[in-house]
Design a protein around this nucleic acid. Structure first.
Length: 273
DNA sequence: AGCACA
């Protein structure tokens, strides 16, 4: 297919989003199903390094819903964009997220006392905006449905099962046998994770800040090995370590000058205390 | 590919 004669026109008229504008710390998310909840958006981003807050907006155009997610830095916004853009948000409909840098930063600062996310409803005059929610404590765990989206950013192969009738059998083999399975390389599942591919200026605080968002996170230990730091993160349960590993695999820390995080199960569990 | 602490 050759170039359209119109190319020159919309290049001039509608410039593409500027992915390099370092001012922008807010992402614009579209491609959402119209029954999406603000909580789902929050769960999608809450573990991403540098995440600040998000808002869900009913545009008033039909049932279209869009969302904005604000980060503490442009860099972390970009990292989340790259990790989540194109992810199938709803496996049933094949609904894929489209994420770009927002044209302008979210002006809405987080007010003390307001929840971690905000809903703006322009569908009609029924609803006022600015209602914030708190799902029974900010530490509440994610429902497992939203989990798959994060890990699905590289491979959607897992979706083969979706739509099937899972769990009807009751106590079937649904219990994950991660103790004898190796999700990473050939190492055994372990409640301690090994972090590599860290940048030289990665700090313990930076990693802690990311990891402390994960349920079950216990202790972090960093070792400077000749030049490149590595880290060990201990979790209460293997499942919790697994989840953190899946979600954080390949994510770019702000400190990183190389690729994203490389995470494996540690070869041995962190010593107790 | 790089896995420490006791």
């Amino acid at each position: 297919m050759a170039q359209q004669p119109y190319d020159r026109y919309y290049k001039a008229a509608a410039p593409l989003p500027d992915y390099t504008n370092p001012e922008i710390k807010t992402l614009f998310i579209s491609g959402l199903p119209d029954d999406v909840k603000a909580r789902e958006i929050h769960n999608l981003f809450r573990h991403r390094p540098g995440f600040d807050a998000c808002q869900l907006k009913y545009t008033g155009r039909g049932n279209q819903v869009v969302a904005f997610a604000t980060f503490f830095s442009h860099q972390s916004a970009i990292a989340a964009l790259r990790a989540l853009n194109g992810v199938k948000f709803d496996p049933d409909t094949g609904c894929a997220l489209h994420i770009e840098l927002a044209r302008t930063n979210s002006w809405r600062k987080r007010k003390p006392g307001s929840g971690p996310y905000v809903v703006i409803d322009n569908r009609d005059r029924n609803n006022a905006q600015g209602s914030s929610s708190d799902d029974g404590g900010s530490e509440s765990d994610d429902p497992s449905e939203t989990d798959k989206q994060d890990s699905g950013d590289e491979d959607d192969v897992v979706n083969a099962k979706s739509g099937g009738s899972a769990g009807v059998d009751g106590a079937e083999a649904a219990v994950s046998n991660q103790e004898d399975k190796a999700t990473e390389g050939n190492t055994q599942a372990c409640s301690t994770l090994f972090f590599a591919n860290l940048g030289p200026k990665c700090t313990e605080d930076e990693l802690k800040q990311v990891l402390s968002q994960y349920p079950g996170f216990n202790v972090l230990k960093m070792r400077g090995r000749g030049g490149l730091p590595v880290a060990f993160a201990d979790f209460e349960e293997i499942e919790q370590a697994t989840k953190a590993m899946e979600e954080l695999q390949d994510t770019q820390l702000e400190s990183s000058d190389r690729g994203g995080l490389h995470i494996e199960y540690a070869r041995s569990k962190m010593r107790k205390r």
